[in-house]
Design a protein around this nucleic acid. Sequence first.
DNA 1: TATGAATGAGCATTCATTCAT
DNA 2: TATGAATGAATGCTCATTCAT
Lengths: 220, 220, 220, 220
Amino acid sequence: MKKKDLKTERKRYRREENKKFILKAAEKVFVQKGFSLATMDEIAKEAQFSKATLYQYFKSKSEMFFEIIYKSFEEVLQKIKRVQQTEMSTEEKLKQAIYTIGCYYHTKKNIARIFIMEKALMRKLLHMSSKAQAPPTHHPPIPARYRGILDEINSLVCEIIEEGVKTGEFRKMDVGQACFILGAMIRGFYFKGPIQDKKELSIQESADLLHDFFLHGIKK
Amino acid sequence: MKKKDLKTERKRYRREENKKFILKAAEKVFVQKGFSLATMDEIAKEAQFSKATLYQYFKSKSEMFFEIIYKSFEEVLQKIKRVQQTEMSTEEKLKQAIYTIGCYYHTKKNIARIFIMEKALMRKLLHMSSKAQAPPTHHPPIPARYRGILDEINSLVCEIIEEGVKTGEFRKMDVGQACFILGAMIRGFYFKGPIQDKKELSIQESADLLHDFFLHGIKK
Amino acid sequence: MKKKDLKTERKRYRREENKKFILKAAEKVFVQKGFSLATMDEIAKEAQFSKATLYQYFKSKSEMFFEIIYKSFEEVLQKIKRVQQTEMSTEEKLKQAIYTIGCYYHTKKNIARIFIMEKALMRKLLHMSSKAQAPPTHHPPIPARYRGILDEINSLVCEIIEEGVKTGEFRKMDVGQACFILGAMIRGFYFKGPIQDKKELSIQESADLLHDFFLHGIKK
Amino acid sequence: MKKKDLKTERKRYRREENKKFILKAAEKVFVQKGFSLATMDEIAKEAQFSKATLYQYFKSKSEMFFEIIYKSFEEVLQKIKRVQQTEMSTEEKLKQAIYTIGCYYHTKKNIARIFIMEKALMRKLLHMSSKAQAPPTHHPPIPARYRGILDEINSLVCEIIEEGVKTGEFRKMDVGQACFILGAMIRGFYFKGPIQDKKELSIQESADLLHDFFLHGIKK
DNA sequence: TATGAATGAGCATTCATTCAT
DNA sequence: TATGAATGAATGCTCATTCAT
């Protein structure tokens, strides 16, 4: 029996590893091509698995995609949590948060891009059923998971700003709004069109820049 | 002869109208579905023309798309030009510019979205395909047109900020960076993911909010 | 391991068989309809495979077509090679060659027809498109393969005639020209219009007839 | 009333001229592209008429095509008739006939090509109706016209050869066969594949070559 | 479990032909 | 009569997904 357990365990482990590997490959392709232009063939090739095999790990292209999204959200959340728990100054914490989110956008490029941008696609994917029939009851759960994480991230950033207000470092304001504006700023910073090329700044420089403007505005 | 002229004129006019109408329909579909998910069938249906007819007005799906992009860019440019020529205070001008750009993002949603976001797609459409294939000589003109307009818009906004710096209203800073940050802020503000729904503000309220934060930052 | 090899082997075999089968079906359709009028749908139906499946075996309609051409060229070449190696009289060899080529035209009808006739189409398919467009580097290889085989066939027939000249069986002449004339005769013999129906001769009778006239001409 | 006649006459004339002009244009395009690849758009452009106008002169693309075929057949017929009525030697007459037919193939290239080659297409075109319904009664007339002319041409050539046999210039033989062989030789001579390029001979040289081989064969 | 093979549903694009003026 | 505009019907090709082994 123990033997069996071990075997099962090993299998489970192997499976987990494969899944991660596939996800890595998929991410690479999604990042390069975006969702629509990424083909399962390409992902399969990148993952060095057969296309059919992918379907044993993930129900669909979309599932794969959402898995990736979810994982990266979690990562961001964890990082910001850790930031929040340190003893830095509020200002410093804020800069760290900006940096963290910047990292996410920078590395996941098209991934974040898609999730944030292609609302129609998302809607379609999340309602996976298009075929008439009101999605019976299930499925809405999916976005809930995301909302949860995003809300947590949001809360953390709000907390940081709130803290700053309390300590008098920051002016009084609607913290929710400030937080949203900050998010927008970072988002927009990384999502420039195919034309605004600009000199590429490093993630750190970008974070500093954003931090600076978000803190001081442009007024004298 | 005058008769003929009139007839010709009327026809030309009709054609122009049809073109606009088709573009309107296409925009609607693109806005709803994004580029990849929008089908010519659907656009045709929306425009109440046969699919084949669309191809008498536009060479391809992409051409249609770019036409839409171009038109809206131009509109924004004209509006901002007009703003710049008025006698308002710099601060007010800035607010107007923000409002104008906000309008654009608000109404064109997915259109702007697509152009800004689906980089891979754009690259493909513009024949900047990474895959060797020397673009057979033609085509590069297309992005140039866009860059031109975008650059002009950018310059105008820079001018406004510059003005403020000169009059002492704004602090000294890298105007280019400030301009980019502002753009990012607006962009990001309108491109929230499918999850961050937030209470919808009116365009005016949004502009005020953005203006406020961009001016003052959050620091005391 | 042997097991695996066997399996792989069987699969490879199956695939090969399928390919042949599809080619057979395609040939049938091409023969009936010519290239332009043959549709992938029809070929798929004839092959009892889905259209998409055809594309797993061949990259395009053209590739299929050229594959067929190539195979039949090779067959002809092999047969004539064998004829040339026998110990028959030159005259007999010539008759055999005529018969062989006749067989080819007879069975491949429209296939040969297309290749020989639809020059414009061929040029298009082979990317020798007159319209500038430097063929992006690839593709020229294709026609080379064909030329090679055709040249070999041509050489063999020339050899045979040359032989006859040397032995004094045939009169002195430009062997290349004679060979071309012979080719033309056979070609033309099988490519009569839709109107010249004539009583159908058997391939053998046709070969005899051609042989007779090519040898003796009509003069006394 | 006379006025009207004149007007009508002029109109008829004009119409006839236009028809010829269109046919000329169509021929040019057909010659370059073959039937399937030639588009009405292109023909219209070449003819400097609107596409719709073409349809006022010809019922369909096919009709145009057949008109062209018919005209060239007639031309050949007339030329050969004239040859036959001269007082040349049989041999010379034969050479002239060969030259005439050669001219036809040379100038009409793809036109003759198509007519002779794309049997399937012809069948389709001649049964213009595909849509169920057995072609009520009409239509078979079309090929009859062609057959008539071709038969006449054939007869004339047969006559020439027959003459030669009677005068003892040519050996005894099945004149029909000889005539067919000659036709085949010429046909095949001009319908070489996209690969057999050969040094291009002038029409006269070609005729001489064909004449020589057809007369003497290759045997000593 | 892993995969080669198969496919249905689509999609952009083309073209001969008709219609309305 | 001449034509610009409109279109139905195809067509080659792709791709996410399933099946059989």
